[in-house]
Simulated assay, not measured.
Amino acid sequence: MKSAWVYGVVLLVLGVTAIFIAGLRLREIPDLAIGHSTKPPTLGRTGEKVIDYEIDGPAGTPVRLSYLDEQGNVKDVSADLPWRTSLRTHKLTLPTGVVAQSDADQVSCRIVVDGQSRDAQVSKGRFASVNCTVPVS
């Protein structure tokens, strides 16, 4: 019984040491030597972008087209010329594109981003087809 206090002191020292080490491990230590770095700057909300797809040709002519929506998914559409649609997004970058084929002798496509024409193509001939693409950033 005389040496029982030694076991108590050893257990107490081990417990205090474990609590101290756990506190160090759970605490954020800004030491670049162990791989910590500063947080990146917070960006503000990006402005809204408006993307307009336009397909033109002889009025009333049927057209089959595909375009990329604001999620990057392909949308297939059968419509009559002229055809237009608008997309609105807050994404930093967005792939955009439209492909169209018509029975008409002429068809044209245009992509307008925030009021600026970014791509325009015209195709002439039987079963005309056009392709417009713009990486929006």
Rank of each mutant, 00 (worst) to 15 (best):
D103F: 01
A79W: 08
L94K: 12
H90V: 15
A104H: 10
S78L: 12
D103Y: 04
L94N: 09
V74E: 14
Q71C: 01
S78D: 15
A79G: 10
L87G: 03
S86F: 01
K75R: 13
L65Q: 04
H90R: 10
A79R: 02
L81R: 01
T93A: 13
L81I: 04
D76T: 10
T96Y: 03
N73I: 08
T89D: 08
A104E: 05
K75V: 14
T85M: 06
Q101K: 11
A79L: 08
Q106M: 11
A104D: 04
P82W: 00
P95V: 06
T93D: 12
S102P: 03
K91P: 09
K75E: 11
L81H: 07
V77K: 00
R84H: 07
D105M: 09
L68H: 06
E70D: 15
K75M: 11
H90T: 15
V98K: 01
V98S: 06
A100G: 04
S102K: 00
A79V: 03
Q106A: 13
H90L: 12
G72Q: 05
Q71A: 12
E70R: 11
L65S: 08
R64C: 09
D76H: 07
T96C: 14
T96G: 15
G72I: 10
L65F: 04
D76G: 12
L68T: 07
Y67V: 00
Q101T: 06
Q71G: 08
T89K: 00
D76I: 12
R88S: 14
Q71W: 09
A104M: 07
W83A: 01
P82M: 03
S66V: 13
D105R: 07
D69W: 03
S102D: 05
L68I: 09
A100V: 03
K75I: 11
Y67I: 01
R64S: 14
D80C: 08
